[in-house]
Amino acid sequence: MGIVLYMIIIGAAAGFLATRIMDVRTDVVTTIGIGILGAIIGGLVLRFLLTVMGMLSGFVGAILGALLLIWVWQTYVKR
């Protein structure tokens, strides 16, 4: 249960920051979804940073993953 709550909180924060950086206006559920998927993508891509820098790198990876997901969504899906 703790991991799920952690993913929702981190996903909400990362999704919020990513949608503001990319200037995308979405509802709360979409923002959290973007953040959670971005955290998964960023976690897979930037896994090595977790061992080097700790939890902060996980948050950075989540934001970068969310930014990548928004870019893919705007480029390929939204048309």
Rank of each mutant, 00 (worst) to 15 (best):
I70K: 06
L68V: 00
W73Y: 12
G54D: 02
G2K: 03
T31C: 10
A13Y: 08
I8A: 04
M53E: 05
G35K: 01
I63T: 13
V29E: 06
I21P: 00
A66Y: 07
I32M: 08
V24D: 00
G38P: 02
L46W: 08
G15Y: 14
I3P: 01
W73E: 10
L17H: 01
Y76Q: 13
A39K: 15
I21H: 00
I41T: 08
R79Y: 14
G15N: 13
V45T: 07
L49M: 07
V52T: 13
V72A: 13
R25P: 03
V45R: 06
I34L: 10
A13M: 11
I9A: 05
G54N: 05
I9V: 08
I32R: 01
D23R: 12
L64T: 03
R47N: 07
R25H: 13
A14R: 09
L46M: 11
G2E: 09
I3A: 06
V45H: 04
T30C: 04
I10Y: 01
A39F: 15
S57K: 09
V52W: 00
L67R: 10
V60R: 12
I9N: 01
M7C: 08
G38N: 02
I8C: 02
L69W: 07
V45F: 08
G33W: 06
Y6P: 01
T51I: 09
G58R: 11
Y6D: 03
D27W: 00
G35A: 03
L64V: 09
